[in-house]
């Protein structure tokens, strides 16, 4: 992996430390590494088998129970949310609130007020200036849209009961 800190090469980093303070520092270090990793490959989810938890160079893997504790810590911190409890998490490279306000300011800046865009357009990178939404996990997208609808900055467009697009205001 590229751009990992030196601590990633430190064997005890892959064992849960028994000292409270050290463990706290270890968790926050892992949190940073996870966020950087997801940002680097633009991935919005992590699970126990993600390659980030294995360092093949020093032959160490973070044990699954420790990963779960790490996920719990991230959820508490607000940098992640459970997708499947105790299995997979959404990693908030950017928080849903930030994404929602990005969408609103994009609408105003590019004069898209009143326009209709589909979810496909949003996540496929067809719209310039909205790179954050590119390959955005559908779960997170729905969270973002919920915020936007709630704020009244857009209305939903449904087809067969599913949201397929939105009309910007």
């Amino acid at each position: 992996m590229q751009g990992t800190p030196a601590i990633y090469e430190f064997p005890p980093f892959f064992t849960k430390q028994i000292n409270e303070q050290t463990w706290a520092a270890q968790k926050s270090n892992w949190e940073k590494i996870c966020l950087n990793y997801c940002k680097g490959i633009n991935q919005w989810t992590l699970n126990k088998n993600s390659p980030v938890f294995t360092n093949s160079r020093i032959q160490r893997t973070l044990p699954a129970p420790v990963i779960l504790e790490l996920f719990n810590h991230m959820v508490e911190d607000g940098t992640a949310a459970w997708k499947i409890p105790n299995e997979e998490v959404y990693v908030y490279i950017k928080s849903p609130h930030l994404l929602a306000s990005e969408l609103v300011s994009w609408t105003e800046a590019t004069g898209h007020s009143g326009a209709v865009i589909t979810l496909f357009e949003l996540t496929n990178g067809d719209l310039s200036g909205l790179s954050s939404f590119e390959s955005l996990d559908p779960g997170i997208l729905s969270q973002v849209l919920e915020i936007v609808f709630k704020q009244g900055n857009a209305t939903e467009m449904r087809e067969d009961g599913e949201v397929v697009g939105l009309k910007l205001k």
Binding site: F10, P11, P12, T15, I18, N19, Q21, T22, A25
Partner: peptide, 27 residues
């Protein structure tokens, strides 16, 4: 020493090995 945070542990199937704490310097 590990419990106090001066060292940290690397649990391996063979044995536990100890390192000087680089994760967090104890106060």
């Amino acid at each position: 020493a590990d419990l106090k945070g001066h060292l940290c542990r690397d649990e391996q199937p063979q044995a536990v090995r100890y390192f000087v704490n680089q994760i967090c310097v104890p106060v």
